[in-house]
Amino acid sequence: MTHISVKVDGTTYEDEVEPRLLLIHYLRDRLGLTGTPIGCDTSNCGACTVELDGTAVKSCTVLAVQADGSEVTTVQGLAHDGELTALQRAFHERHALQCGYCTPGMIMAARDLLREHPHPTPDEVRHGLEGNLCRCTGYQNIVRAVLDVSEEEEVTA
């Protein structure tokens, strides 16, 4: 067991964990933060994407011990006092989700994309989201939602 201290969505947690514990299982099974789901074994689907110290990572491919001393933001940490972020609103307004399983990862990946490219082209949006699979939408409305946010003057994704 290894001792870790991780700040997740603003709260600091101290835990003893097995080194092999994946960050996604730490979030889901230990902290009960089930907003971030798991979709594959090979880091292809991106459903488990969270932010680790401000950049998007696939939490199925990071060990919980590696997050020791770090800050993690999940989809559950985005809205404050019921106030959705611009991306969350855009996903809703553009019908960028159907079953919603890929949505947490897709939103976290889109945040990352907009940080790096605040005003992307449609093609850049598609490539920026290439690590996140969606089986419902055909991606078109997801691309629209991200572009909507990028067109807003100040990016507060």
């Binding site: 991106g46 994407t49 680790l52 990572v57 696939k58 990071v62 920026g128 290439e130």
Partner: peptide, 9 residues
């Protein structure tokens, strides 16, 4: 290489 999230790690 891979995708942006993988490239962060």
């Amino acid at each position: 290489v891979a995708d942006p999230a993988v490239r962060h790690r």
